[in-house]
Design a protein around this nucleic acid. Structure first.
Length: 489
RNA sequence: CGAGGUGUAGCGUAGUCCGGUUAGCGCACCUGCUUUGGGAGCAGGGGGUCGCAGGUUCAAAUCCUGCCACCUCGACCA
């Protein structure tokens, strides 16, 4: 590992890739835009995933798995939805390879498929194809299914975790007998997204509705959680869609009501992806690397011992072992880094880079005084504590770190969220970075003008908007909505 | 796909203009000894189709032609 990473203030995007590669979260795959998620990065994803999974199940959802391949014809069935993805689909056209005369491998032309197959960019179409078979009566509803899967979108420009050609996510697809129930589901999930972001990822998010141009093409309404990154740009961290009867109509999914009439099914779909890892990095990271919220840190506490020989390390192990076991029994993820031939200083830097929330330093001094040296990654400070109360001390500290990371991020977001009244002011503020809250006349043309001129887009129309007596920042007309504008990833 | 740039060991690079030793250096890696309270030191060692293909030449990383890949900026996007 080479020394140091690019300073955050010097070059934010270089800093970002440095953190990912040096902290061993991920590496570039051989095909453009693909990414290998390395064990440490995947361990974070698993913790994030487990938390969402737990909450989906607690609200009555079940996991299932639908195929990667989708018949091309399915995409013709929902015109708006197709518009959104047609330009970025990977297509399977052949099923065989053959060796050439000169021993190179080429596609066997005789294996051309009758019907070309699409690699899913999202699974609405296959799922609705299946729902048609599964739904007859209102007694079959609701269907509350989630799947953890990979999807492929052939992106022009990619960035590790934030936008890769293939990524991992969960996609929930629900079917309901009434609009209100489907709408309730859509917002219920948004609540889960918001609370996991806040309570586990320690990321404050803005919740609201997307504008027409920013919403998912197949949806009636798209709701989102938006987060502010360390460079003050916005990141869409999760979306939940009310699909109305769009897919039911496209795939002809009707059900018989309790009064024996026939009606199209109402639907929702929702997803969060490995992009969240990118958000964690950019919201919490500092010049020394990653800072992980304890809730999703694969290692919450690392012990770095000072020792010169076997005898010393054995003494340290013997001394710390009961406390280590006690911490483990409380569910704390703890690791003793007893690697030889690597200096403690090197380990300090390495674990800081990897964002481990708490480090315990232990050597002859500590054993003699029964006082351990503890380093807190969120504030980069050391303190001492008696060993006999270690477990409570560590538990409290992890809680504090979890809280503090959220507080820091929340403070940063508040400091960089502005309300403006004039377009001149708007442009000045947008250029400095951050979220801008202002009146908007609700037209796409205004939205586009602002985007073309400032690169800022509407991130969402916040739930707590109050457009009354406000004017559109651009057109000066009465505002239909208050919107949050920002430059986004 | 438009504009610009870069390809030399796992990574970062010198050398390319002006052709001429065995392609040099740092990090990483391996071995040994000494070390260890904030990225240890010394000694030894391994690793290169110089992006690919052709051409010019006594001689090519270096000059010429073609191709490929990647990066930055646009257009496109979770």
């Amino acid at each position: 590992m080479s020394k140091g990473i690019t300073q955050k203030s010097e070059d934010h995007s270089k800093w970002y890739t440095d953190v990912i590669t040096k902290a061993q979260l991920a590496d570039y795959g051989p095909v453009k835009g693909t990414m290998v998620i390395k064990p440490y990065g995947f361990a974070i994803w698993e913790l994030v995933k487990d938390e969402f999974d737990k909450q989906f199940k607690a609200t009555g959802h079940q996991n299932a798995y639908f195929p990667l391949f989708i018949p091309k014809s399915f995409l013709a069935k929902e015109a708006d939805h197709v518009e959104g993805f047609a330009k970025e689909c990977a297509i399977v056209t052949h099923s065989r390879l053959m060796s050439d005369e000169d021993n190179s491998i080429k596609v066997d032309p005789s294996s051309k498929l009758e019907e070309e197959i699409i690699v899913r960019p999202t699974s609405e179409t296959v799922i609705w194809h299946m729902y048609k078979k599964w739904i007859n009566s209102y007694r079959d509803l609701p269907i509350l299914i989630n799947q953890w899967a990979n999807v492929v979108r052939w992106e022009m420009r990619t960035r590790l975790f934030l936008r890769t050609s293939e990524f991992l996510w969960q996609e929930g697809h629900t079917a309901h007998s009434t609009e209100s129930e489907a709408r309730e589901e859509t917002l219920k999930i948004l609540d889960i997204y918001e609370s996991v972001s806040k309570n586990h990822l320690a990321i404050p998010v803005l919740t609201g509705k997307k504008s027409e141009s920013e919403k998912f093409a197949g949806a009636v309404d798209t709701y989102c959680i938006e987060a502010m990154m360390g460079d003050k740009r916005a990141l869409q961290a999760g979306t939940s869609h009310y699909l109305g009867q769009n897919f039911a109509k496209a795939f002809d999914v009707k059900f018989q009501t309790d009064s024996n009439t026939e009606e199209y099914v109402y639907a929702s779909s929702w997803g969060v992806s490995t992009r969240l890892i990118g958000a964690i990095i950019m919201v919490h990271g500092d010049d020394n690397g990653l800072r992980l919220p304890p809730s999703i840190a694969p290692t919450q506490v690392v012990i770095v011992p000072f020792f010169k020989n076997d005898e010393e390390i054995n003494n340290i192990k013997k001394y710390i072992d009961p406390y280590l076991k006690e911490l483990e029994s409380k569910g704390i993820r703890i690791l003793l880094d007893d690697r030889e031939k690597i200096s403690p200083g090197f380990k300090f830097n390495e674990w800081e880079l990897k964002g481990v929330p708490v480090r315990i330093e232990i050597g002859a001094k500590e054993i003699e005084s029964n006082q351990l040296t503890i380093f807190r990654r969120d504030i980069n400070q050391k303190e001492k504590t008696p060993i006999n109360t270690l477990t409570n001390y560590i538990q409290d500290m992890l809680d504090q770190i979890q809280q503090n990371l959220f507080q820091q991020a929340d403070k940063f977001r508040k400091e960089n969220t502005f309300t403006v009244d004039s377009y001149e002011e708007f442009k000045t503020v947008i250029n400095k970075g951050g979220f801008v809250r202002c009146g908007w006349d609700g037209t796409e043309i205004t939205e586009k003008h602002i985007k073309d001129e400032t690169k800022a887009t509407i991130r969402c129309i916040p739930f707590d908007e109050s457009p009354e007596n406000k004017q559109c920042i651009f057109s000066g007309k009465d505002a239909l909505h208050e919107a949050i504008f920002a430059k986004a990833y």
